[in-house]
């Protein structure tokens, strides 16, 4: 048996499932009220600023004369909120669990496998993402920005967006060495937030930049949420689902490898 085989053995072998770790997370979070409050307050603040405040300055959505700017921006902000919730859990939270609290050094000494640890991380982060997405959807309704029943599709869409970003985030967490490295994480997230058509359509860019933006996962996530929100599901949704499913599969597979490398010495 080679070392790689041995590592693979320690890494896989599903047995206990994800419930034990999810139970642990529930124990930890049931003492913290901030997450629930934030899930409602933060979207309200963002909608107030970007939708109403900026919206009054901009008027209607560029190129879409029947859509108010607030209605255009809200789905983009929602996608960002889902991305932030999921990655906060798998980048910041998982970094803490892997390297600061060393939770997983303890867990791998039990029958739980690394594949199960990764799965539990991803389910939990997805749940956080869906909570953020649903909270945001409620805030949009409060601002009168929900017009179609199709908007309910935003909930499952949030789950897919959260899962894809959670898996990518876990990979990032495995590379982070200390808290200072988080500024580089910010360096990736911020431009995505600003340029992935959150605030204005792809058409404002020259073709070269458009191609670049079309590679960004947040661009597809925003499409996946904006189309049902505006009540018009089309080809972009199909592309977005394909993109995010592929991203999830690839990142998930690599996250298990990375976690194995970090945890098995």
């Amino acid at each position: 048996m080679t070392v790689t085989e041995a590592i693979r053995e320690v890494a896989s072998r599903p047995r206990v499932g994800t419930w034990p770790l999810l139970t642990r997370q529930v124990y930890v979070y049931r003492r913290s009220w901030t997450e629930l409050v934030a899930a409602v307050l933060e979207p309200l603040m963002y909608l107030l600023t970007m939708g109403v405040g900026l919206g009054k300055l901009v008027g209607h959505a560029p190129g879409l004369s029947h859509v108010s700017y607030a209605a255009y921006v809200a789905p983009g902000l929602l996608a960002m909120a889902v991305m932030n919730a999921a990655t906060a859990e798998t980048i910041f939270g998982a970094f803490d669990r892997i390297k600061q609290a060393k939770l997983y050094d303890v867990v791998i000494a039990t029958p739980m496998s690394i594949a199960e640890i990764v799965r539990a991380e991803l389910w939990w982060a997805t749940a956080r993402g869906v909570l953020a997405g649903t909270g945001f959807l409620a805030a949009m309704a409060a601002f009168g920005l929900v017009h179609s029943v199709m908007s309910l599709l935003i909930v499952p869409a949030s789950a897919l967006v959260a899962l894809a970003f959670a898996a990518a985030g876990l990979i990032a967490a495995s590379y982070v060495r200390d808290w200072d490295d988080f500024q580089y994480v910010q360096l990736v997230m911020l431009p995505m937030f600003l340029f992935a058509t959150t605030f204005y359509p792809l058409s404002v860019y020259p073709r070269g930049v458009q191609l670049l933006v079309e590679c960004l996962p947040l661009f597809h996530s925003i499409n996946l949420i904006r189309e049902p929100a505006l009540g018009a599901i089309g080809g972009d949704t199909v592309v977005a689902v394909a993109y995010l499913v592929a991203m999830t599969a690839l990142c998930w597979w690599f996250a298990v490898r990375r976690m194995t490398r970090v945890l098995v010495r």
Binding site: V58, Q186, L187, L194, V204
Partner: peptide, 25 residues
């Protein structure tokens, strides 16, 4: 680097919104 890149990103990103605002409002 962060201190220069952050404002650059913010100002170019929001600057594009600015173009929309300047042409409409």
């Amino acid at each position: 680097v962060i201190g220069l890149v952050n404002p650059l990103l913010f100002l170019t990103g929001i600057g594009i919104i600015g173009k929309l605002i300047d042409s409409s409002a």
